[in-house]
Simulated scan of single mutants.
Amino acid sequence: MRIVVTITVALLLVVMSLPLILVSVARLSRAQTPHAAISTSAPPDQVPEVGRPPEQPSGRERITSRMRTVRDLVRQQFGVPHGVGCFRENDRIPGGGRGEHHLGRACDFMLSKGGARPSAGQQARGDAIAAWLQANAHRLGISYIIWKQRIWSPGRAREGWRPMSDRGGVTENHFDHVHVTVD
């Protein structure tokens, strides 16, 4: 009888402690996630969380608030002297559908002008932008990144950068800009 009572009391203590354990684990995991790596002055409530459904574009720029946040953070962090292209009315994908630019969920961070190949310094800036986006992908809600005819996505991060087929030119193959799409 005494063993049964001891086991019952022990189980009760574990069950009663479970909510506290779960809260502690959640706090610990939040402290170790990539959002701690974001170096920005943006208040945390302006950086959208991952796992939300895709947003609708808004404002005169016709991009989502998540895309606007990513665009602004990249501009702050790296500067983009050759511009950022986001919404495009005529953005189409093979098969006739609308592309992510038309949906307000994609931006291109231009590293050179007029379809020219970027210099070594410009490529280094592109590498830094792409690496920063990768490091902060989960926190920022990034769906995928395209750079130098390669694609990377958080869902397939273990595969690293995957090659893409030749689309024809410097711009089409993303050698002169880093493309990012958000959820």
Rank of each mutant, 00 (worst) to 15 (best):
residue 2 R to T: 10
residue 3 I to Y: 11
residue 3 I to C: 03
residue 4 V to L: 12
residue 6 T to V: 11
residue 9 V to F: 06
residue 11 L to N: 09
residue 12 L to H: 03
residue 15 V to R: 07
residue 18 L to K: 00
residue 19 P to L: 09
residue 19 P to S: 12
residue 20 L to N: 05
residue 23 V to T: 10
residue 24 S to K: 04
residue 27 R to Y: 09
residue 30 R to F: 15
residue 30 R to A: 14
residue 31 A to K: 14
residue 31 A to H: 13
residue 32 Q to P: 04
residue 33 T to V: 05
residue 38 I to T: 04
residue 39 S to I: 14
residue 40 T to Q: 01
residue 41 S to K: 15
residue 42 A to R: 15
residue 46 Q to N: 07
residue 47 V to E: 14
residue 47 V to L: 13
residue 49 E to S: 12
residue 51 G to I: 11
residue 53 P to K: 07
residue 54 P to H: 04
residue 58 S to R: 12
residue 59 G to S: 09
residue 62 R to L: 15
residue 63 I to P: 02
residue 64 T to Y: 06
residue 65 S to C: 05
residue 65 S to V: 05
residue 67 M to K: 00
residue 69 T to K: 09
residue 70 V to M: 02
residue 70 V to I: 10
residue 70 V to L: 10
residue 70 V to Y: 10
residue 70 V to H: 02
residue 70 V to S: 08
residue 71 R to T: 14
residue 72 D to I: 08
residue 72 D to Q: 15
residue 73 L to G: 07
residue 73 L to N: 01
residue 74 V to K: 11
residue 76 Q to I: 01
residue 76 Q to E: 13
residue 77 Q to M: 07
residue 77 Q to R: 15
residue 79 G to R: 04
residue 86 C to N: 13
residue 88 R to D: 13
residue 88 R to M: 12
residue 91 D to K: 00
residue 91 D to C: 06
residue 92 R to D: 05
residue 93 I to P: 00
residue 94 P to Q: 02
residue 94 P to L: 07
residue 95 G to S: 05
residue 95 G to I: 08
residue 95 G to K: 02
residue 99 G to E: 01
residue 100 E to F: 08
residue 100 E to T: 14
residue 103 L to R: 12
residue 104 G to H: 03
residue 104 G to V: 09
residue 106 A to R: 02
residue 106 A to T: 09
residue 107 C to Y: 03
residue 107 C to Q: 11
residue 110 M to E: 10
residue 111 L to C: 13
residue 115 G to P: 11
residue 116 A to I: 00
residue 118 P to T: 01
residue 118 P to Q: 03
residue 118 P to C: 03
residue 118 P to K: 00
residue 118 P to I: 00
residue 119 S to R: 06
residue 122 Q to I: 07
residue 124 A to H: 12
residue 125 R to M: 11
residue 129 I to R: 00
residue 131 A to S: 10
residue 132 W to F: 03
residue 132 W to Q: 02
residue 133 L to T: 04
residue 137 A to T: 09
residue 139 R to N: 05
residue 139 R to K: 01
residue 143 S to F: 08
residue 144 Y to F: 15
residue 145 I to A: 10
residue 145 I to K: 03
residue 148 K to L: 05
residue 149 Q to F: 06
residue 150 R to K: 15
residue 150 R to P: 01
residue 151 I to F: 11
residue 153 S to L: 11
residue 154 P to E: 09
residue 154 P to T: 09
residue 154 P to Q: 10
residue 155 G to N: 13
residue 155 G to H: 04
residue 156 R to A: 07
residue 156 R to S: 09
residue 157 A to H: 03
residue 158 R to C: 04
residue 159 E to C: 04
residue 159 E to L: 14
residue 160 G to E: 11
residue 160 G to C: 04
residue 162 R to G: 10
residue 162 R to F: 12
residue 163 P to K: 05
residue 166 D to Q: 02
residue 167 R to C: 00
residue 168 G to N: 06
residue 169 G to N: 15
residue 170 V to G: 03
residue 171 T to S: 14
residue 173 N to R: 07
residue 175 F to C: 00
residue 177 H to D: 02
residue 178 V to G: 08
residue 178 V to M: 01
residue 178 V to Q: 06
residue 178 V to F: 06
residue 179 H to Y: 10
residue 181 T to E: 13
residue 183 D to P: 10
